[in-house]
């Protein structure tokens, strides 16, 4: 049963992840322009991935917060704007190769491994790279991951009724891209936390027939 709504704006990596056999029964693709109360009725969680259309999210802010007020979960990855999230995201250079060039200095130095998404993950599975930082987060939000400089990478708050989790990691996009081979660990933990459903073990696969005329759109 599809219980996680993945808000997407026609970007291929979102599509590749959500339509993979491993995740297809759990994630429902919702085109950003179709996001309204009816489209997400009955879902347990929303995922707002990196490379989202921030202006369109602002226009639908009330739908997202109404969903949260019902005690549900929203996961935000990558960048965001303060126009819909009570936090300040700032861009920073992306370091894809810290583990090659400087493996003793990862972009994230502190992680709360007691958080259900991170429980059982190794440091490499918990951070591959980051897309910017949060320089301000909501009052009383919990910091889940931070940099050696003390800047916030991941945070969580329950102040809106449900649970809002934001991170500058990009697990959904990168799992769709499939250039990082260990992301099944993070995304499977995330999926189980959001939906209560544990994806089938093993590596994500792709179905060729869902590209082109057979696309699920």
């Amino acid at each position: 049963m599809q219980t996680i709504g993945l808000i997407f704006n026609g970007v291929w990596s979102h599509y590749a992840m959500a339509t993979a056999p491993k995740y297809r029964a759990i994630y429902k693709l919702i085109y950003i322009y179709d996001l309204d109360v009816a489209a997400i009725e009955g879902l347990e969680a929303l995922v707002i991935p990196f490379q989202s259309n921030q202006a369109e999210l602002v226009a639908r802010k009330s739908v997202i917060y109404n969903f949260l007020s019902q005690g549900k979960k929203v996961f935000v990855e990558g960048d965001s704007t303060a126009d819909w999230l009570d936090a300040q995201w700032e861009d920073r250079p992306v370091n894809n190769y810290w583990w090659v060039d400087n493996p003793d200095n990862p972009p994230v130095s502190e992680t709360n491994y007691d958080h259900p998404v991170y429980r059982g993950l190794t440091p490499r599975q918990a951070c591959w790279h980051t897309h910017g930082v949060y320089t301000r987060i909501p009052d009383y939000a919990d910091i889940v991951q931070s940099t050696p400089e003390g800047e916030v990478i991941s945070w969580e708050t329950n102040r809106y009724g449900g649970t809002l989790f934001a991170t500058t990691l990009d697990p959904i996009v990168e799992h769709g891209v499939q250039q990082i081979s260990h992301l099944d660990h993070y995304v499977d933990r995330l999926t189980e936390w959001l939906s209560g459903i544990k994806p089938a073990p093993g590596k994500m696969t792709i179905e060729k027939d869902l590209y082109g005329e057979g696309a699920l759109v």
Partner: peptide, 20 residues
């Protein structure tokens, strides 16, 4: 990656069966 069929004559296909 044009996963829909809007490009005449050509189709992009995602694949992860080969090692990077």
């Amino acid at each position: 990656g044009w996963f829909t069929s809007w490009v005449p004559g050509n189709q992009w296909v995602m694949d992860n069966t080969k090692r990077t």
